[in-house]
Computed example of a mutant assay.
Amino acid sequence: MTDLERLRPVLRTSWGADTCDPHDVPDWHPGNPARGQCGVTALVIQDLLGGELVLGEVFVGSVKVGHHYWNRLPDGDDVDLTADQFHPWETVVGARVQHRPPGPPGRCRQQYELLRGRVLSGLDRARREDAGAA
């Protein structure tokens, strides 16, 4: 088991255009690395920390332009490590808990597996560095 503070920087350095939701790739860039990472990031966080997936809707004005995922941890705290991806004119509304079907995701599976592998490697590297420093 890992903790959120160890996980946060590893996730941020693991994001890339290749882990981005295909819908958001045109808007992804290194200056906004969280763009399009919400779904796969929420799944990886749930894998490692447990809890529930939460889904909201993204609006520009009164027009729905997408969905946004984040996590509700077992202690009840909501955690959204990709909230900073949104522009000031985008608003996330609603918060419905989503049941996660068993097995790998049907959508963005390749991005999820790539992100999960990077995160697990990064956490392992951080643990070895911590052990070496002790």
Rank of each mutant, 00 (worst) to 15 (best):
M1K: 06
T2D: 11
D3N: 15
L4K: 04
E5K: 15
R6I: 09
R6N: 12
L7K: 01
L7D: 01
R8P: 04
R8I: 08
V10L: 11
L11S: 04
L11Q: 01
R12Q: 14
T13G: 03
W15Y: 04
A17R: 12
A17F: 00
A17H: 02
T19D: 02
T19N: 02
C20W: 00
D21I: 03
H23N: 09
H23E: 13
D27E: 15
H29Q: 13
H29C: 13
P30L: 04
G31A: 14
N32C: 11
N32G: 06
P33L: 06
A34S: 12
G36N: 07
C38D: 10
C38F: 05
T41M: 02
A42N: 01
A42Y: 00
A42R: 02
L43S: 02
L43E: 01
I45D: 00
I45P: 01
D47T: 05
L49S: 10
L49R: 12
G50Y: 09
G50E: 07
G50N: 08
G50H: 10
G51C: 07
G51F: 03
E52G: 02
L53R: 11
V54I: 15
G56H: 07
G56S: 09
V60Q: 14
G61F: 10
S62M: 08
S62G: 03
S62F: 05
V63A: 15
G66W: 06
H67V: 10
H68A: 11
Y69C: 04
N71Q: 08
N71V: 02
L73Q: 10
L73R: 06
L73E: 10
D75L: 12
D75R: 09
G76K: 13
D77G: 07
V79H: 08
L81K: 01
T82G: 04
A83V: 13
D84F: 11
Q85L: 03
Q85Y: 05
F86S: 04
H87M: 10
P88V: 10
W89K: 09
E90A: 08
E90K: 06
E90L: 11
T91Y: 03
T91I: 11
V92T: 06
V97E: 14
Q98P: 00
H99R: 13
R100P: 07
P101E: 13
P101S: 12
P101T: 04
G103L: 10
G103M: 09
G103W: 09
P104T: 02
P104G: 13
R107D: 07
C108E: 11
C108A: 11
Q111I: 07
Q111R: 15
Q111D: 12
L114Q: 15
L115Q: 06
R116D: 01
G117L: 02
R118Y: 09
V119C: 01
V119Y: 00
L120D: 04
L120W: 06
L120G: 03
L120C: 07
L120V: 12
S121A: 14
G122L: 11
L123E: 09
L123K: 06
L123S: 08
A126P: 01
R128G: 00
R128P: 00
E129I: 05
D130E: 15
D130A: 15
D130P: 00
D130W: 11
A131D: 12
A133R: 14
A134R: 14
A134M: 11
